[in-house]
Simulated assay, not measured.
Amino acid sequence: MQIRQISAALDAKLVQLDHQLKQLEKQYQQTPDQQLVDEMAALNQIRDKLLKSKDIAWRAHQLRDDNDDQRRARQRMTGLIMCGLSLIGAVALVYFALQ
């Protein structure tokens, strides 16, 4: 699953939770009940965990991208060095072939 799909799924869950919280708050305003307070607290904890999960997923994605960029830079440098060595070898072969 790609990071955008994960983020979208988490956003959808957050919207659902926000909707549920609003409904519970309306119910609580009409009839205050400790069970509603407990449910709202549980939903807020779940919401906080989803936000943390989303943040962690984006951080992991960013770290992977940073590592990929570093790896590509090393591969690029290795490729350039190999080309340089091949050029030096070709020049040496031409020099020895002409003598």
Rank of each mutant, 00 (worst) to 15 (best):
Q30E: 12
I56D: 14
Y28I: 09
L51S: 06
R76L: 12
G79Q: 06
G89S: 09
R59Q: 13
R59P: 01
L24A: 05
W58N: 12
A12W: 03
W58K: 13
A12K: 05
S7P: 01
K22Y: 12
R64I: 12
V91K: 01
H19F: 15
I6W: 04
K13S: 05
E39I: 08
N67A: 14
H61I: 03
D11Q: 03
S7Q: 07
R4T: 15
E25K: 13
D65R: 15
A73Y: 01
Y95W: 06
V94A: 06
L85R: 02
K52E: 09
M1D: 07
K49I: 09
Y95S: 13
T31M: 09
V94M: 06
K13W: 02
R74K: 11
Q34L: 13
M1S: 08
K26H: 09
A73Q: 07
H61F: 09
K54Q: 05
V15N: 10
Q29H: 08
R47M: 02
R76C: 08
L87G: 00
L21S: 01
Q23A: 13
Q2L: 14
R47T: 02
D66M: 12
Q30A: 11
D69I: 12
N44M: 05
L80Y: 10
I46G: 03
A57V: 00
R71D: 12
K52G: 09
A60Q: 13
D18S: 15
M40D: 01
L51Y: 06
M40T: 06
N44I: 05
D66W: 12
D65F: 14
K52A: 11
L51W: 04
K49A: 07
K13V: 04
R64K: 15
A41V: 09
Q99K: 15
L17W: 04
Q75S: 09
I81Y: 07
L93R: 05
K13P: 02
L14I: 00
H61N: 08
D11F: 00
Q5C: 04
L21T: 00
D65T: 15
K26V: 07
L87T: 03
N67D: 14
Q2Y: 15
D38I: 03
N67H: 12
E39C: 03
A90K: 04
V37P: 03
I46D: 10
V94Q: 01
V91W: 05
A9L: 11
N44P: 02
